[in-house]
């Protein structure tokens, strides 16, 4: 029995090592390609180490070279305004995280604890909204944002996401229901208002799930592509995913400029790595917590 146990551990180690390798290998390929001369792509694309490493690709995607020089180095002359795109991504994500978390917490608490006419119907509708595929509301929302004159503005980019999302409300409601009622009842008997109870008692007890839902919203919004792509074409409002896709489609005849693209990707990954280094435990635990109530 002891033998089978250690054999099992061995198998586990192999699975884990294999998956870690498969997870990490692409990052190495990205960085390695980013460090190659674009002319070497055809002859050395499969080398595991860049021979004659260069930072020219980083320079050209960051716009540190003139358009002519950059085209000579094998690019399309296109660059990515990284600081602006990252700033836009941060603002876009940040605003949605804050507003949606607050709004979801408030409504989830009401659904969990307060009795009011129409509660079940409204909650049912919120839950049902999760079933509607995004593509359905996509076209009318685009028209709505246009009619409001919010195209090419941060307001138009965040509006459909920031107030309500079924999952956030549902998730937090489940949590509030599971919270012991005693504290709130005690406060109620002492004459505290419902709002006071929500704000002063329920919220402080819910910091962990609030961080969880904020993290999940943050991950999703940081990666959102199609909506900002259609609503905010203007370079001044492009988020990172949109900037990257338009960089990819810059090259003549649509052939990707691989070395430039990999340099752009390497830079785009940095905020994510930074997030993991700083808040790794929070992020990981938030994601884990999202499934097991």
């Amino acid at each position: 029995m002891l033998q089978s146990f250690s054999l099992f551990r061995l198998v586990c180690w192999i699975i884990l090592a294999l998956i870690l390798a498969v997870t990490l290998a692409p990052f190495w390929i990205v960085i390695k390609t980013a460090l190659m001369h674009s002319a070497d792509v055809f002859t050395h694309s499969t080398d595991l180490w860049p021979n004659d490493a260069t930072v020219v690709n980083f320079k050209r995607v960051l716009g540190l070279m003139s358009t002519e020089e950059s085209i000579k180095a094998g690019g399309s002359g296109a660059k990515v305004n990284f600081s602006l795109a990252m700033f836009n991504s941060f603002v876009f994500t940040g605003l949605i995280v804050i507003i949606q978390t607050a709004s979801a917490a408030a409504s989830a608490y009401a659904f969990a604890r307060l009795r009011f006419p129409g509660r079940n119907v409204i909650f049912g509708l919120f839950v049902a909204s999760m079933m509607i595929p995004g593509v359905v509301t996509f076209i009318p929302n685009f028209i709505l944002i246009r009619d409001l004159g919010w195209l090419n503005s941060m307001l138009g980019m965040i509006a459909p996401f920031c107030l309500m999302q079924g999952f956030s409300v549902f998730f937090l409601r489940q949590f509030f229901i599971s919270l012991p009622k005693e504290l709130e009842e005690a406060a109620y008997l002492e004459g505290a208002s419902y709002f006071y109870i929500f704000w002063k008692i329920a919220i402080p007890l819910s910091i962990t799930p609030l961080i969880t839902i904020a993290t999940l919203i943050g991950i999703n919004m940081w990666n959102e592509f199609l909506w900002p792509f259609l609503v905010a074409k203007d370079e001044s409002h492009q988020v990172l995913t949109v900037a990257l896709q338009s960089f990819k489609s810059q090259t003549p005849q649509g052939q990707p400029d691989w070395t430039g693209l990999m340099a752009a990707i390497s830079i785009s990954i940095l905020p994510t790595i930074g997030l993991l280094l700083l808040f790794g435990r929070n992020v990981v635990e938030s994601v884990q917590f999202s499934g097991g109530k």
């Binding site: 607050a102 408030a106 009795r115 009011f116 509660r119 909204s129 509301t137 076209i139 009318p140 929500f198």
Partner: peptide, 30 residues
């Protein structure tokens, strides 16, 4: 009871606006 109802609606108002404007209305429009 009125206070409870009032608080509840105040709390769900932002989400309700979001739901109406960006889920319900567009679905009907689609």
């Amino acid at each position: 009871r009125r206070a409870e109802t009032f608080t509840a609606y105040a709390l769900i108002l932002p989400a309700l606006i979001g739901f109406s404007l960006f889920y319900a209305l567009p679905t009907i429009r689609a």
